[in-house]
C-alpha cells in the first residue's frame, strides 16, 4: 500500500530534497514510522518526545487536518495523499 507524502521545503533535508516521497502504513502513526525508516530523523521533526504531533506541524490526509480525524490513529488507504505543512499565520 503506497501513500504519497508531500514534504514541505524546511523538511526536505531529510528527503534529499524530494518534494514528495512514498511510504506505507494503515494508520498515520505506522506511516510515520515507515517514513522514519527510509528518512531517518523525520519522525522527530513531526512528533514530540511525548508522542503528540508537534505544535507547529499540520498533517493533512486528502486535505483534512488529522487532528480532527483521529490524529496519529487516522486510518489510511491506498491512494490517499498525506501533506505535511508548517503552521503559518493568516489574516
Amino acid at each position: 500500500m503506497a501513500i504519497e507524502v508531500k514534504i514541505p521545503t524546511i523538511l526536505r533535508t531529510y528527503t534529499d530534497g524530494s518534494k514528495s516521497v512514498e511510504a506505507k502504513g494503515d494508520t498515520l502513526s505506522a506511516l510515520i514510522d515507515d517514513l522514519d525508516g527510509s528518512h531517518p530523523g523525520l519522525k522527530g521533526r513531526l512528533i514530540t518526545d511525548e508522542g503528540a504531533l508537534h505544535r507547529f506541524v499540520n498533517i493533512y490526509v486528502n486535505d483534512e487536518d488529522v487532528r480532527f480525524t483521529g490524529s496519529l490513529e487516522t486510518q489510511l488507504k491506498d491512494g490517499d495523499t498525506v501533506t505535511v505543512l508548517p503552521a503559518v499565520a493568516g489574516g
Binding site: 524546511i10 521533526r45 507547529f56 508548517p86 503559518v88
Partner: peptide
C-alpha cells in the same frame, strides 16, 4: 505556494 512557507525551521511556525 512554497514561498509563503519559507520558514527557516519548524519552530518559527505560528498558531494564533
Amino acid at each position: 505556494g512554497e514561498l509563503v512557507y519559507g520558514l527557516r525551521n519548524i519552530d518559527e511556525g505560528f498558531v494564533p
